[in-house]
């Protein structure tokens, strides 16, 4: 597992990645390990309009702590600052267009790579071609990630979040609320929405020194690359996509929540291609019961199978 890649701050706090739908006891245990005498808060913005359906988290923590309500706060911002809301929608449209262009190219490259992998013939001739095909895919992934980042930086330069009253006020409220919080739990849901809210409210900075306990889509946003995946969609070949740049809080991994449900893990060729494509990162199968722990400097526990090495 690489520990060098990704923009991880020296001062960043520990991160515990949990498998999908963690058991109440395990979740509580992880929070208690790190909270000391500090408080706990949670983020369920990925659930969008159902953000407040957080009874399971609340119950697990015996009613202690609070929901940061980033989704509702985001709606408040859009409502108070329609110009920003319009700019946000335009940015989303640009991202969707980028994604369509990426997928057109990706499908061609992935199909070519898969067909080449299945070709029979002299390995001395074919292997370099296969490697070149893989390189093409990796280059496209990195290109797409760069384009997403460029679009985001251009958007942020255009709107100046920090200079907008609604955003500034809520950021200040959140900083105050987080003052005594030691642990922040983060559930999954709609990953781009979750990322968007985290960035809107400058949460990467506010969360830097705090311990994060995340599961589902919450684990995905903490990696350098957010990889979207489903091997059996109703339409299309189901090629995994680099969907977003993540927060880069955990290096060297790509968490794959509910992997056993979403991936055809019995298709060895497909699995092998996915694992190789995202090297040097390890694709972690974050099924129920899995756990991986980053202490801010290194991985201290990884109880999650890696794609390609699973039984």
């Amino acid at each position: 597992m690489s520990e060098a890649s990704g923009p991880v701050s020296e001062a960043s706090g520990p991160v515990v990645l949990l498998g999908s739908h963690p058991d109440v006891g395990d979740f509580r245990h992880q929070v208690d390990r790190f909270r000391g005498d500090g408080g706990v808060a949670w983020i369920t913005a990925g659930r969008q309009e159902w953000e407040d359906e957080d009874g399971a988290i609340r119950d697990a923590l015996d009613g202690e702590g609070f929901n940061l309500r980033l989704y509702a706060r985001g709606e408040e911002v859009w409502s108070r600052d329609p110009e920003l809301a319009d700019a946000h929608r335009a940015h989303q449209r640009r991202l969707r267009l980028l994604r369509r262009a990426y997928n057109l190219r990706l499908q061609r490259l992935m199909d070519g790579w898969a067909r080449m992998a299945a070709m029979v013939g002299d390995a001395r001739v074919l292997d370099p071609e296969r490697e070149a095909a893989l390189d093409d895919v990796r280059r496209l992934d990195e290109h797409h990630l760069r384009r997403i980042e460029e679009a985001r930086r251009a958007f942020e330069a255009e709107v100046h979040f920090g200079e907008r009253d609604a955003v500034r006020e809520i950021r200040a409220q959140l900083a105050e609320r987080l003052d005594h919080v030691r642990v922040v739990a983060m559930a999954g849901g709609h990953v781009p929405v979750l990322l968007n809210r985290l960035r809107l409210f400058d949460m990467p900075r506010l969360l830097t020194s705090r311990t994060l306990v995340a599961w589902g889509g919450g684990t995905m946003v903490l990696a350098r690359r957010v990889v979207l995946f489903h091997d059996s969609p109703p339409w299309g070949p189901g090629h995994a996509e680099v969907g977003e740049a993540g927060l880069g809080r955990v290096p060297g991994v790509i968490p794959l929540p509910s992997a056993s449900r979403r991936l055809r893990l019995d298709d060895a060729d497909r699995v092998d291609r996915m694992a190789r494509r995202f090297e040097p990162d390890d694709c972690l199968l974050m099924d129920h019961g899995a756990r991986a722990e980053w202490d801010g400097h290194r991985w201290t526990a990884v109880e999650a199978a890696r794609l390609g090495e699973h039984a």
Binding site: H21, H190, G217, P257, S258
Partner: peptide
């Protein structure tokens, strides 16, 4: 219906991870 509806109104299958 699955093929028809999911093509005409694609859901957030690729974006949502609980």
């Amino acid at each position: 219906l699955r093929m028809g509806l999911s093509w005409l109104l694609p859901g957030p299958l690729w974006l949502v991870y609980d």
